[in-house]
């Protein structure tokens, strides 16, 4: 087992798949422990996006965790648009070296840098934009991508969105703009878990064929069938990188399972925004082995 907070040194060389799977297990432990500790937060979507974040921060992104700068010059930059899945974001930021994993214990507590929804306001390294009010992150990502083009910076911009978030109109303003203006240094991903607060997306507001919709909006659309398989996530993100620079923004429609990795949380919207009790926490932890040290 690794000592706490030593990931960055260890993973200057890309970790193996089995190592990444172990990180995922540890991140899932972080998520449920964080929301349990303050009896609030959003475990469901966080668990479902564990493989995505782990792949991004330990394999895909060109970034400097110990030397964070807001401008992200010559680095890839990432924006979390569905800010409520902050637990997974914070866990992976900490475990990839942006700040100490011990700080995860302050999540949602008074005077924390780990606010309920991510913010730049408290100066947390790794966060470049506040999010929480949905639908804004794609526009922001486009702005950062345009800035990179003006700066002749060839690194990429990534954004993550919830599928329920696509019900916000601003997403489609942004989607229309990105293709019309050939913002081709952008890889957006939608977490298609089919769930939102009030029920399944099909119950609340069916969104039809998302692939056809984004293609009609001029995007290069990739489908990721199992977003909870780390190999598939990495392969698709790597494939997406080869699709950049060709005149179109790139979209990954990533199917995940809300609550993935904890059997009683899976396949339902019910764990979108509630915390486990003591018994449930113990059960959740028993299903995800500690590999890299709990915070």
């Amino acid at each position: 087992m690794l000592k706490k907070g030593t990931f960055e040194q260890k993973y200057t060389i890309m970790p193996s798949i089995s190592e990444l799977e172990k990180i995922c297990s540890q991140v899932r432990r972080d998520i449920v422990r964080m929301v349990h500790a303050v009896n609030s937060g959003h475990p469901g979507g966080s668990l479902g996006c564990t493989e995505y974040f782990t792949a991004m921060y330990f394999e895909i992104l060109k970034h400097s965790p110990s030397n964070f700068n807001m401008d992200g010059t010559n680095e890839d930059v990432f924006f979390l648009s569905n800010g409520h899945i902050s637990p997974v974001f914070y866990s992976v930021l900490a475990r990839s070296g942006y700040f100490s994993v011990s700080e995860l214990a302050t999540f949602r507590k008074l005077n924390t840098r780990l606010q309920g929804h991510p913010t730049t306001h408290e100066g947390l390294p790794g966060v470049r934009m506040s999010s929480g009010s949905l639908g804004q992150g794609m526009s922001v990502a486009i702005g950062a991508a345009l800035s990179k083009k003006l700066n002749k910076d060839n690194s990429l911009v990534y954004s993550l969105h919830g599928d329920g978030e696509l019900q916000e109109g601003q997403i489609w303003e942004a989607a229309m703009y990105a293709s019309a203006k050939k913002v081709d240094n952008l890889i957006s991903t939608v977490d298609v878990n089919g769930q939102q607060i009030d029920g399944s997306t099909d119950q609340v507001l069916p969104m039809g064929n998302l692939k056809a919709k984004f293609e009609a909006f001029g995007w290069d659309v990739l489908s990721l069938q199992n977003g909870n398989n780390i190999t598939e996530v990495i392969d698709t993100l790597k494939l997406a990188k080869t699709h950049t620079g060709k005149g179109k923004p790139v979209m990954i429609l990533m199917k995940t399972e809300m609550g993935n990795g904890i059997d009683f949380m899976m396949g339902s919207h019910k764990w979108h925004g509630i915390a486990p009790n003591n018994e449930q926490l113990a059960q959740a932890l028993s299903q995800n082995a500690e590999h890299n040290g709990d915070y």
């Binding site: 526009s139 950062a144 800035s147 990179k148 003006l150 601003q170 303003e173 942004a174 019309a180």
Partner: peptide, 28 residues
């Protein structure tokens, strides 16, 4: 022209893009 961005009738998108462009040092 390279520093002018016609966004279309989409003010919400414009504000978000402007916010994003500051990352990289632009003054929108």
């Amino acid at each position: 022209p390279e520093r002018f961005f016609q966004i279309g009738i989409a003010e919400a998108n414009m504000m978000g893009i402007a916010a994003g462009m500051t990352i990289g040092g632009k003054i929108p």
